[in-house]
Design a protein around this nucleic acid. Structure first.
Lengths: 233, 233
DNA sequence: CACTCGTTGATTGTCGACCAAACTATCGAT
DNA sequence: ATCGATAGTTTGGTCGACAATCAACGAGTG
């Protein structure tokens, strides 16, 4: 649930009176980003006072609220009188997340394929072309960005706000695990072969194929991850 | 996201000093229950002071926290300086929720079927037998309870905490819409015919069938709902 | 009479101080 | 060295105050 607080108008009187306080959302984003990038590692305790030191304009109430919300998102855990800490995910959690992704993103692909949204489909095709253009390059950074954009577009194309919301909640934990994985060139090839087929199915309105292929695509991703046997703390 | 705060120990000193204040979780449950039962109707504003009047031991901070969390659950919306109000769901929201349910509960059925959990499967079979026993009765109340138990058990059987969490978030909004719908006897028959087939597929480990049937079952539910053309405000 | 524009009361947003409860580390006695 | 008391730290939670905004109401003007 983004925005809302972002639209809070900055009143002149207030801005003049004191430094604009960080809304809880912003504190939340800051912590979330740190978790995503790995500067907060799993198990690490998130001490309220420390966060306030690093974000001087954040007050304790804000930090507390942010931590509460992150806990309800499942990104941190809160133990009574011990405070918040970055949640540890097990190998089985990863499997579960991927199963959920398969279900949700598969459905999204199917619904997008069945929908009459030529403009969005053109954009998908465009991204696909870009992806094809760099699949043999070594620009992993760029591939990752386009890859994310490709997935995001399909979710948007499904027009399902609930599916979007749920997948958003899976994104960070999964990403945090993914940064440990160096995409091999071979993996990129495989992934993009899958992408191509999915894009084609969506653009041509073959909903059932789109869903099946998307599921296979995600399942492959999980297999690659599992094969790497990354050390999940 | 249950528990956690429920485990808060009631210290003697505190309990003696004054009435135990309601934790945010409890306020949340109270509001949620009211929404579910329809005593808070969509669009209705949830004024902090009013809630404090009705729950004398609840403090403002707790009420506010509860509302914030309910907002992040998507059950209420918060507009700045206008406070919280019960979220209105459109007809299209309903459709989206059912699509998400199809994806998630279908996957849950498949995973349960594929899992080696004889004890849980026996319990499912037992509930199914009970359901069969009353499918021609007029005890809608009891059917509804068993129906919920049946769904819950399949989700538990999938062993997927994320899917469970997501479906939990869909439950209340959907239930709130469902109470408006009096299950017709015919609908009960149809529903239970679906149930029987699904139970059988799960117990016999036919994952693919279980998923397909569960999807059809939920899709039927949506159709029934749509046909009723209930007035969603 | 309709319309604009302050004024006022109600409600929410935010903060900071305060205290209690629980955890944690230190230090002393045996 | 081990155990237990003790002090400091951190979190859980409340309260009161004040600012910002909204909403309703009424006065003045054309």
């Amino acid at each position: 649930m983004p925005a809302k607080t972002d639209s809070r108008p900055v009143t002149k009187a207030r801005a003049a009176a004191r430094a604009e306080p960080l809304a809880a959302t912003e504190v939340m984003d800051w912590i979330r980003e740190r978790i995503r990038r790995g500067s907060f590692v799993p198990g690490q305790r998130l001490v309220e006072a420390d966060i306030m030191r690093e974000l001087p304009t954040a007050t304790r109430s804000r930090v507390r609220e942010a931590l509460q919300r992150l806990a309800s998102e499942g990104l941190v855990t809160i133990e009574e009188f011990r405070g918040a800490s970055v949640k540890r995910f097990t190998h089985d959690d990863l499997r579960q997340m991927y199963r959920a992704r398969m279900a949700l993103e598969g459905m999204a692909a199917a619904d997008f394929a069945a929908a009459d949204k030529p403009e969005l489909k053109r954009r998908l095709q465009k991204i696909q072309t870009e992806l094809n253009g760099i699949e043999n390059s070594v620009d992993h950074e760029r591939f990752a960005r386009l890859n994310e954009e490709w997935h995001r577009l399909i979710i948007e194309g499904s027009g399902n706000e609930f599916i979007r919301m749920f997948l958003e909640r899976l994104r960070i934990p999964i990403y945090r695990l993914l940064i440990a994985t160096f995409y091999s060139a071979r993996r990129i090839d495989n992934a993009n072969a899958g992408h191509r087929k999915i894009t084609e199915a969506i653009v041509n309105g073959r909903a059932r194929d789109a869903e099946r292929l998307m599921r296979e695509h995600i399942a492959e991703g999980l297999e690659t991850l599992s094969a790497m046997d990354l050390d999940i703390k």
